[in-house]
Design a protein around this nucleic acid. Structure first.
Lengths: 227, 227
DNA sequence: CGCAAACTTGAGCGTACTCAAGCGCAGTGG
DNA sequence: CCACTGCGCTTGAGTACGCTCAAGTTTGCG
């Protein structure tokens, strides 16, 4: 059994990641905890690579993870960020289609797919929970399609900050990822991300305690840009 | 930017859509067929709207469907196209997050969610099939993220044509959708799509029998752009 | 045949990219 | 204590790719 109190931050890491406000149904997660093992991952260490056998699913206990797709010439797309409490690695095929990497030193709960399958047979409710989790991921990915396909740089950064603020459950956002990760997530360059954040600061929509610590001063201009 | 009502009003001749080469596992689909009803939908008619209660799932029997997200100022993102044999409308939440519209006059198989849930309880294998379908959708959406975030116009159009060619099971592609739909799917403008198709034709990569009927002459330049 | 919609093509513009410095902070060693 | 170094971030100048605005052409159907 895994209580919220146990999900503490890594002592070596200065970045605190609060738990997301709404977690998935506790029952399914607790079930997973009983059949999983813990794994510590260093900063920027690969958790799995594109093409690896998709034999495990993961839950972030502390830290932060990104899933990434690379084009041959080095162009990079960050598909998603996963913070404490969130699951990743659910795949339909035999192999992972994207790689996953730790953004900061992280602790993961690892569940082997074959053990998960055995649990699924015993508990039909768990199957439903997994499906809902996958469907929610799909929803998020689709919303991100609209961002990448149809929003301007300012709108993209504003949307990103708003969603990070929601997940942080506060006005102050501690970003675990650097500007390059944000750029590759939003389909922009690092320079454009930096310039846009500066612009939002000039407009008094946000305030920077440091580059990685952003406070939302005024939601309205951000929300307006969120469209 | 075109408003919703202005989109694609021309009653073009009915377009024939061959079945995709590989369908999903027949068992799950046949199961669905036994508990579903048929529905005919006119061209450009909405099947469900963003915000409607998500109480049905669909399978395209003939025709073609697009799922769409609109921003307030009219900017539009086409999330996906569904051809004959493909399913859509699987949602995690209570309501649909995107609208679905028929691209051409189409026939749909409609399955009520509550009936589906009853089937699921009886047949655990069906639950697995549904999950795999959702996970495959997620995979497709994520691949599309990379296209929208990191590919050039030529690469986007080339990728699109390649994937349509795969689904058409032949060298010749009959496109059910117009240029505006393609543009909104690829995150481009209609002019850029048109210009890029012309460019690929000049380069002898493709050949146009008509605007909606494209034959692939040389996969190599397309594949190279696909990255 | 005639009209409207869909598609194509052209010219000029603007947003975000590229290339290139410059800045700021943390860790290190003299 | 302060220079030194490395890294991440910011800022600047010029460019290019795709967008906007505006015809022109083709297609399909009444």
């Amino acid at each position: 059994m895994l209580s919220h109190a146990e999900l503490g931050r890594t002592p070596t890491q200065p970045i605190r990641l609060p738990l997301p406000p709404r977690s998935q149904p506790a029952s399914a997660e607790d079930d997973l905890a009983t059949i999983g093992t813990r794994q510590n991952v260093e900063r920027n260490r690969e958790i799995y690579a594109e093409g690896d056998a998709a034999d495990r699913v993961f839950r972030v206990l502390s830290g932060a993870v990104r899933t990434v797709q690379l084009l041959e010439d080095g162009r990079r797309q960050v598909n998603a960020f996963y913070l404490a409490g969130e699951m990743f690695g659910l795949e339909a095929g035999e192999t992972y289609r994207f790689s996953a990497e730790a953004i900061v030193p992280s602790t993961l709960l690892v569940v082997r797919r074959d053990r998960l399958a055995r649990q699924l047979a015993a508990r039909p409710a768990l199957a439903g929970a997994l499906w809902r989790m996958t469907a929610r991921e799909l929803e998020r990915a689709r919303a991100h399609l609209t961002l990448l396909g149809r929003k301007t740089a300012v709108e993209r950064v504003a949307s990103f900050l708003m969603s990070m603020a929601e997940r942080s459950a506060g006005e102050t956002i501690e970003l675990p990822m650097g500007r390059q990760d944000i750029a590759d997530f939003l389909g922009l360059t690092i320079e454009t991300v930096s310039r846009t954040i500066s612009l939002l600061e000039e407009r008094r929509a946000i305030e920077l305690a440091s580059a990685r610590c952003i406070r939302i001063r005024d939601r309205r201009p951000l929300a307006a840009m969120n469209a």
